[in-house]
Design a protein around this nucleic acid. Structure first.
Length: 208
DNA sequence: AGCACA
């Protein structure tokens, strides 16, 4: 550049070339349409490699159309602000986000997103709700089955609302979950259906 | 599908 600077450009008028470094930060459309400037997320990340590349490579095309730089704000900007070329103003390529890798979990087991939703959407509880008991099922019969499970505490039955249901208290959720998985579908002597239906006890104390 | 006691 310095070798060409001052070269006689037009011999008739004597104009000379005026070459200088392009001010990459000179084009900032303040008040214009595209104010959408993406805050650089890579700025505070040390692994962001945006420093060495594209350093002021877009400033050249602006200088030949303008000829003059903008007032003031050109020099005060930091050189790190030059990588907003791909922000949102011009690259409206259709369907450019179709190739982004969406990794869905495709394991054979049913959707296990870190939390076992064993029976239903009821959150785990140390108390089990036992239904599908036979109409002739007694508390002692059920308690005899439950007492073989570790952590079993107490059993309460209630046969007022049609079919009898039972509530089994365990010492902790681990024990109740193990007992539920173990006794799920157990056919008692008094059962007339498929067997026991066990869920976590639904508490009335839900979050308001 | 059916969820109570204190």
């Amino acid at each position: 550049m310095t070798s060409l600077n001052g070269t006689i450009f037009d011999p008739d008028t004597g104009d000379r070339l005026h070459i200088e470094l392009a001010k990459s930060t000179s084009r900032r459309p303040r008040g214009g349409g595209d104010v959408y400037r993406v805050i650089d997320k890579r700025a505070n990340k040390p692994e962001g490699n945006a420093d060495h590349e594209n350093f002021g490579e877009e400033g050249w095309e602006e200088d030949e159309s303008d000829g003059h730089d903008d007032d003031g704000d050109g020099g005060s900007d930091e050189p790190s602000g030059t990588e907003n070329e791909n922000s949102s103003d011009k690259n409206e390529l259709p369907a450019d986000k179709s190739d982004q890798p969406v990794h869905k979990q495709q394991n054979g087991s049913p959707a296990n997103d870190g939390r076992d939703k064993s029976s239903s959407d009821i959150p785990p509880c140390s108390t089990l709700f036992i239904a599908n008991l036979g109409r002739t099922c007694t508390e002692d019969e059920l308690k005899e089955v439950l007492s073989k499970e570790p952590g079993f505490h107490v059993l309460k039955m209630r046969r007022r609302s049609g079919m009898p249901v039972a509530f089994a208290d365990f010492t902790d959720i681990e024990s109740s979950t193990a007992a539920m998985n173990s006794l799920q579908g157990t056919v008692l002597a008094s059962s007339d259906n498929e067997g026991l239906h066990i869920e976590y006890a639904r508490s009335k104390m839900r979050k308001s």
